[in-house]
Design a binder for these strands. Structure first.
Lengths: 128, 128, 128, 128
DNA sequence: GTGGTCTAGACCACC
DNA sequence: GTGGTCTAGACCACT
């Protein structure tokens, strides 16, 4: 389920955050679905519960999950996510990547086709 | 020339790397142009030369600059850059960003138009 | 009647307390009016009776309600409330809020006008 | 300097946050002034550095302090604080307190005079 | 020396 | 059993 890389320079809790986000975004975790409890996941990954706690707390602050005391943590339905700020960040990120793609002379058409392919994939599985 | 943000939590040497890369990619620094020496830049930014050293070392490893002993450091012409690895990284990065854009329901067309606009801008100034 | 927010990190029993207090203060619940029994309210909100119990117990300790065995719980008439301690708490709270308002440079007049408006509203409906 | 109450139900890190905020708001700590390092304060209060860390991190997220790696933590100048959201919270808080003051029949004039007094105090010491 | 990350193990409030 | 808080002690990256 999760693959942690201890050699990587990025902190464990961020790796957990990233992978959880990926699972939510990819649709592997559905809206309002329960995610593993802090202790469960800690045991699964054989790391300290505090590290999971930190990851979950930040995921909650960023709006990807919500937690209910004595119940567990759950995936925020995507329509409830505060989108505007995030979209700005994503577009800035996109711009930076594309500018470098231009620099290394990847043709426009290749990039556009790639993006259309990604949209096509998702559109058929997760739209609606 | 450089704008360092001490309050930002990203390390100074990375901020320097990023800004140097931006200047190379944007064309502000031309191929084979000399960039400031470690000591010069350290003095300009009033920070420790070790910090600059680290930034330059990584830029060289990533192929953006090359250095000649007793001469200084210079911008690698873009045709000499080892592109394949970098392109892979960029495409992976692109995929992650686009998947999240899909998740927050930004329409395909908006993304594609944005990318075409970026290509158009650069095409007229730096292409060829 | 009551709106519980499970995602909120404040305990359920406090949410119930707060809302009950608000209803008493606003006049929605009159003096000596009967409030729902523990079991009734638990059923209405589909939560554990213990949680309601805890809320009622604290409301009683703070003097907002009183209970009669085998009869139920009732709203304390406002003249019977032990006011002095509570007023001290409120004034301390007020001081803290106002000091921060000063810090973020909200002008005195704006605060004063706001308070006068609140008094005017209540004065016409519930005073006397 | 700091007074922690171990018996209090509120977490230690929040007590630290509150007191630090009070000191910033009261002007006891000036803009860009260095506050004690994580370890220093931990030693002063004889509590664990992690607890201080948590308090500082949240204070930084809320904009009251900023930290620079390998340098320390510093007070954010008040003009740089993101005010609008905070003002809304404060006004809501104010409303709740005032409504209860009305309920326990504290006269409007007493409240208004109290607020004017607070503004007068601050105005003479910290304005400009 | 500073802030940041992590562990192992404990205790608490809530439901 | 769940999330949240706390301790004691360790290690790391950065400057």
């Amino acid at each position: 389920m999760f693959q942690l890389n201890l050699k990587d320079h990025s902190p464990l809790y961020q790796q957990i955050k990233e992978q959880m986000k990926t699972m939510i975004i990819s649709g592997a975790l559905k809206a309002d679905e329960k995610i593993p409890s802090v202790r469960e996941l800690a045991q699964m990954l054989t790391i300290n519960p505090n590290t999971i706690q930190k990851a979950y707390k930040e995921l909650e602050q960023e709006g990807f999950i919500y937690s209910i005391r004595a119940k567990g943590s759950f995936v925020t339905p995507r329509d409830n996510i505060l989108k505007e700020v995030r979209i700005n960040e994503l577009m800035t990120n996109l711009e930076k990547t594309v500018r470098e793609l231009i620099y290394v002379q990847v043709p426009c058409q290749q990039v556009v086709l790639y993006i259309k392919k990604l949209y096509a994939e998702e559109g058929s599985t997760a739209d609606d």
